Amino acid sequence: MTNTLIFVDLASEDPSKAGDFYAKVFGWQNDARPEGVYHRMVPGGFFKKSDGTDSEIGNLHLGIFKAANARPHPEPEGVEPRVLSADGRKPRVWVLISDDDSADRILGTAEDLGATILWRNHYWKEFNGYNHAFRDPWGNEIVLWGKAGQDPQIPADFTRE
C-alpha cells in the first residue's frame, strides 16, 4: 500500500475568519478544533463511483492553521516563522466545482469576502477541465476545476492550452 495523502493545511493570521470565508465560499462546515487555532473544513459527502453513486471514501478535508503558532508542534509556544509567506509561488489547492454550483457564484462570493480573482475562463485540455483561480485574503491560491465532459464545448471567450 502506498502512503496516503490525508490532509492539506493553509496558513492564516485568523483561522476563525478563514474558516468562515471557506464555509461561505464553498458551503463547507467550519469545524474549529480549537476555535481560532486550527479549523478543519469539512465538505461532507463522498467521492463518487463511475455510476454516480457514493463510494465508501469520504471527501477530503482542508485544515486552516494559525500562522503565529502552527499546531501541532512539540513546542507549546511554536517556532519561527510566525507570519504568512508573501513572495513567490506557494502550493495551490484544487477544488472540483459541484454540479449544483458554479464558478461565477464561487468567484463572486470569494471576491465579496476579500479574495483576489487571479484568472478565469480557461480550458486545460490535458485534464479536460474549465479552470478559474483566486487568492484568498491570506495569500493562499485556490484553483477551481469544472468538468468539461466527453465532447467539451469550449466558450469562445475561454483561453486554451
Rank of each mutant, 00 (worst) to 15 (best):
G146I: 00
L10V: 09
N140A: 05
L10R: 03
V143D: 12
T53N: 10
E126L: 13
S16L: 12
I97F: 01
W124T: 14
G78Q: 02
P137Q: 03
F158W: 15
P72W: 09
G36S: 05
Q150Y: 03
Y38P: 02
W145C: 11
P152M: 09
S55H: 05
K24G: 02
S98C: 07
A148H: 07
P137M: 07
R82A: 07
G27D: 01
S16A: 14
Q150C: 00
D151F: 13
D14F: 06
G63M: 06
S102Y: 01
N69A: 05
A103T: 05
N121W: 03
F134N: 01
P152H: 09
L113E: 09
E75A: 13
L5N: 04
K90Q: 13
I97P: 00
F21N: 03
D31L: 10
N140T: 02
V37M: 10
N59M: 12
G108N: 09
F134K: 03
I154L: 11
E126Q: 14
R71S: 11
L60T: 13
A70C: 03
G129K: 04
A23D: 00
N59H: 06
E35A: 15
G44I: 08
I64M: 10
E77S: 14
G78N: 05
E77N: 14
R33F: 08
A70M: 14
H61V: 14
P43C: 05
G139V: 06
T53I: 06
E77W: 11
N69D: 04
A148T: 08
K17D: 02
T2D: 08
M1D: 08
F158I: 11
G36C: 06
A32L: 01
H39E: 04
F46A: 02
A156C: 01
Q153E: 11
V83R: 15
W119S: 10
F127Y: 15
W138A: 03
H122W: 09
P15A: 06
D104V: 10
S50C: 01
P152Q: 09
D54W: 10
D99F: 08
A11I: 04
E75L: 13
L107G: 00
G149H: 07
A148M: 11
P76M: 11
G44L: 06
P137E: 02
I57P: 00
A18M: 09
E141R: 11
G19S: 05
D136K: 05
K66A: 11
F26A: 02
P76A: 07
I97D: 01
W145V: 12
L62E: 00
G45F: 11
P43T: 04
Y123I: 04
F26E: 01
V83F: 08
Y130H: 09
G108P: 00
F26K: 07
P43G: 04
R160F: 07
E161V: 14
V8D: 00
D104G: 02
E75W: 10
D31C: 00
G139E: 01
G146M: 06
Y38N: 01
Q150T: 14
A148F: 07
W28N: 07
T116F: 02
V83M: 10
V25N: 02
R89E: 08
L84H: 09
F46Q: 04
A148S: 13
G114N: 13
L118V: 15
V79R: 08
G129S: 12
V37G: 00
A133R: 09
D151V: 12
L62Q: 01
